[in-house]
Amino acid sequence: MSASLRLLPAQPLTAEAFAPYGQVIECAGHASYAVNEGSSQRFSDLAQLAADADGRLALSIFRARRRNAPYRLNCLERHPLGSQAFVPLDRQAFLIVVADEAPRAGRPAPESLRVFLAEGGQGINFNRDTWHHPLLALADGDFLVADRLGPGDNCEPVDITGWQLGIEQP
């Protein structure tokens, strides 16, 4: 890795730390109740999925390939027309990179970048307009993705290669 590359530490993913960006999707810490004649436990309303009136929510599968260290950060994106959720179907860990918007800039603020490590039983839902890096899977596997489909441009990318940032090995 380049000597000029600044490495960001990954912190454990918790609902409290991730709250400004969205929700952590996991059973831990949530109430449940029996369904299906007692053969299942239901954990309800784990994420607040959103889409504008012109779009619709859809479920997709992303078949992700493992990203190898060094984890160099090249772009951020946000979805202004709806939320976006990722749940690993094979319980694989993944990295999440988020950023706040710079005041009066309409772009992410480099100094606000945060990195989270999602353990295999955790998924996430990004709030609408949350700046984030594309999926950084730490193992090959499938992810269930819930996001908005429909007319309009729901992906606003920005190139951050010039920021010279990477992620410390988790």
Rank of each mutant, 00 (worst) to 15 (best):
Ala28Gly: 03
Asp140Tyr: 05
Gln48His: 12
Arg56Asn: 11
Phe116Gln: 00
Leu165Asp: 08
Asn74Pro: 10
Phe143Tyr: 15
Leu73Val: 00
Arg56Phe: 13
Gln84Pro: 03
Phe143Ala: 01
Gln122Tyr: 11
Cys155Gly: 04
Gly38Lys: 00
Ala109Glu: 14
Ala139Asn: 08
Tyr33His: 15
Trp131Glu: 07
Asp100Lys: 10
Glu26Pro: 00
Ala69Lys: 02
Gly82Ile: 10
Asn68Tyr: 12
Ala34His: 05
Gln169Tyr: 14
Ala51Glu: 07
Arg42Thr: 02
Thr161Pro: 03
Leu57Ile: 11
Asn125Arg: 12
Ile25Trp: 02
Asn127Ile: 00
Gln169Asp: 13
Ala19Cys: 01
Asn68Leu: 13
Leu13Tyr: 12
Gly166Leu: 04
Leu57Gln: 05
Pro110Thr: 07
Ala3Phe: 13
Ala64Arg: 03
Glu101Phe: 05
Ala3Lys: 14
His133Asn: 11
Arg65Asp: 14
Gln122Thr: 09
Glu156Asn: 02
Leu117Arg: 09
Ala28Phe: 10
Asp54His: 08
Pro12Asp: 07
Asp153Gln: 13
Gln23Asn: 14
Gly38Glu: 04
Gln84Arg: 07
Thr161Gln: 15
Ala118Pro: 00
Ala105Asp: 01
Ser40His: 11
Arg72Trp: 08
Glu37Ile: 07
His133Cys: 11
Val158Asp: 08
Gln164Ser: 14
Gly123Arg: 06
Ala102Gln: 15
Leu7Ala: 07
Val35Thr: 14
Val98Gly: 09
Gln84Asp: 10
Ala69Trp: 13
Ala99His: 05
Glu111Gly: 14
Leu46His: 02
Ile167Val: 13
Ser83His: 09
Glu119Gly: 02
Phe62Tyr: 15
Asn127Ala: 14
Ala85Gln: 01
Gly121Ala: 12
Glu156His: 10
Ile25His: 04
Ala53Pro: 10
Gly141Tyr: 07
Gln164Ile: 01
Pro9Ala: 11
Pro80Arg: 00
Glu168Asn: 15
Gly121Thr: 01
Asn154His: 05
Asp129Gly: 01
Glu37Lys: 11
Leu59Asn: 02
Leu89Tyr: 11
Asn36Leu: 01
Ala19Arg: 04
Asp54Ser: 09
Asp140Met: 06
Tyr21Val: 02
Asn36Arg: 04
Leu136Phe: 08
Asp140Leu: 04
Pro9Gly: 02
Gly121Met: 02
Asn68Cys: 12
Tyr21Ile: 03
Ser44Gln: 14
Arg66Asp: 10
Pro103His: 03
Asn125Val: 08
Glu77Pro: 08
Arg114Glu: 00
Arg67Asn: 12
Thr14Arg: 02
Ser83Leu: 03
Phe143Lys: 07
Leu8Cys: 03
Phe126Glu: 01
Leu46Asp: 12
Ile96Ser: 01
Gln84Ile: 06
Tyr21Arg: 01
His79Ile: 04
Ser40Lys: 04
Leu89Ala: 15
Val145Arg: 10
Met1Trp: 08
His132Pro: 04
Asn125Pro: 02
Asp140Val: 04
Pro170His: 13
Gly106Asn: 09
Ala137Lys: 10
Leu13Met: 05
Gln92Ala: 13
Ala50Val: 10
Phe86Val: 01
Asp147Leu: 06
Leu149Lys: 09
Gly120Gln: 05
